[in-house]
Design a protein around this nucleic acid. Structure first.
Length: 127
DNA sequence: GCTATGACAAGGA
DNA sequence: CTCCTTGCCATAG
C-alpha cells in the first residue's frame, strides 16, 4: 500500500463520531496539501478491505459529492444524520459547525512535518 | 515514462 | 450564492 493511501486511512479512521472533515483537510494532514481529489479516490477504492468512516469526509463547502461508489449520497447523508449532523438541505450541511479540529498533539501522531502541522492549524483550526 | 482521470479547491464572473 | 475555469497530483493503464 502506498504511503499516501496509508496516511489517508489512518487520518480518516481518527475522525471522531459526529465530526466531519473536508477532502482538502485530509490532504493537508497527509502532508500533500493539494491532493484533495486523491483523498476521495483512495476512499473510493477501499473495497471494504479496512473499516474506515469514509462518510465523515465531505467537501469544503459542506456538500456531499460522493460518486462511483456502491454507496449513494443519500447513504452518506443518512449515516451523518445518525451521528447527529443536521442538513440544511439535501446533501448540504454547515461544515464549520461539525469540522474536526485536531490539536497539535494529535497531528504529531500522524508524523507530520512541522510545516504541515502549522499549515493545518492555521487553515482549519480557526474558530 | 507518459497520458488521462477525477468522492477537490479557490477564485473570478 | 451558483456556475465555470484553472491548477493539482496520486493512480491506473
Amino acid at each position: 500500500m502506498s504511503k499516501f493511501k496509508e496516511k489517508v486511512i489512518q487520518i480518516v479512521s481518527a475522525i471522531p463520531y459526529g465530526k466531519v472533515v473536508s477532502y482538502g483537510q485530509v490532504a493537508v494532514m497527509a502532508g500533500v496539501p493539494r491532493a484533495a481529489i486523491q483523498v476521495g479516490s483512495v476512499l473510493n477504492k477501499l473495497e471494504a478491505e479496512v473499516e474506515v468512516p469514509w462518510w465523515r469526509v465531505i467537501n469544503n463547502s459542506g456538500r456531499i459529492t460522493i460518486k462511483g461508489s456502491i454507496f449513494t449520497p443519500q447513504d452518506q447523508q443518512d449515516k451523518l444524520e445518525e451521528e447527529g449532523i443536521e442538513f440544511v438541505e439535501q446533501f448540504k450541511c454547515e461544515i464549520e459547525n461539525y469540522r474536526w479540529r485536531p490539536d497539535e498533539k494529535k497531528l504529531k501522531e500522524f508524523k507530520l512535518e512541522d510545516e504541515y502541522i502549522f499549515k493545518t492549524l492555521s487553515k482549519y483550526n480557526l474558530t
